[in-house]
């Protein structure tokens, strides 16, 4: 957009005077030249002046359009900033939710797969094997006559082997000399 320049007399082209003016008698022309208001009227009636005035009006209209565009931009910007603010609040909420879930997850993982938990579970499992073989022996003592001794001893021996293996693993686990999942 170019800069508006003031109109000068060369651009205005007020001369030659209109035929109606130049044909005036000299004394009337003198009066015309002496009266500012008449001169003003003459200048305003010129096409070049009108065109210049129209340029200024057009420029003002362009500025008005730009201002309207700025108003649109501002309202758009406001809407945008409100959305951003809403999303920021949502982010804050999500962060809090994340912290809660993270804590819960840590607790759940711990209760499921914590080493101490698993070790105590394994210990219970070994004690269960020991109890199983003991109950097998007791059971044979009460009803032994009806069963084959060799078969019972094989089952008992296998059960004891399982227990001893578990016990050994547990001992080594205590000493942290095992591998596997952990």
């Amino acid at each position: 957009m170019s800069t508006l320049q003031p109109l000068n007399i060369n651009q205005l082209q007020p001369f030659p005077l209109l035929k109606e003016l130049s044909a005036l008698p000299s004394h009337l022309l003198n009066q015309f030249a002496a009266l500012y208001e008449l001169t003003k009227g003459y200048v305003v009636s010129l096409d070049t002046y009108g065109s210049h005035q129209q340029d200024i009006v057009n420029r003002i209209n362009e500025n008005v359009d730009l201002l309207n565009r700025i108003l649109e931009l501002i309202s758009d910007y406001n809407a945008c900033s409100q959305q951003i603010s809403r999303l920021a609040q949502r982010l804050e909420l999500l962060y809090r939710q994340f912290l809660e879930l993270e804590t819960a997850q840590y607790q759940l993982l711990s209760s499921n797969y914590n080493t101490n938990v698993l070790k105590s579970k394994f210990e219970r499992f070994a004690r269960g094997s020991d109890a199983t073989s003991s109950s097998m022996a007791k059971s044979y003592a009460t009803t032994g006559a009806e069963r084959d001794l060799l078969q019972f001893l094989r089952e008992f021996k296998d059960s004891r082997k399982e227990y001893h293996m578990q016990r050994e693993k547990l001992n080594r686990w205590e000493e942290e000399r095992v591998s596997g999942l952990f």
């Binding site: 003031p6 007399i9 205005l12 000299s26 015309f32 500012y36 001169t39 003003k40 005035q53 200024i56």
Partner: peptide, 29 residues
């Protein structure tokens, strides 16, 4: 006569003249 007329026209066109439309041009620019 024309000299006087030109003076009047220049006076009217003078951007410092509040009646001239050019008075507003610096502000508009």
């Amino acid at each position: 006569q024309l000299e006087r007329l030109a003076i009047q026209i220049n006076a009217f066109l003078d951007p410092n003249n509040e009646e001239s439309v050019d008075h507003l041009i610096p502000q508009i620019n």
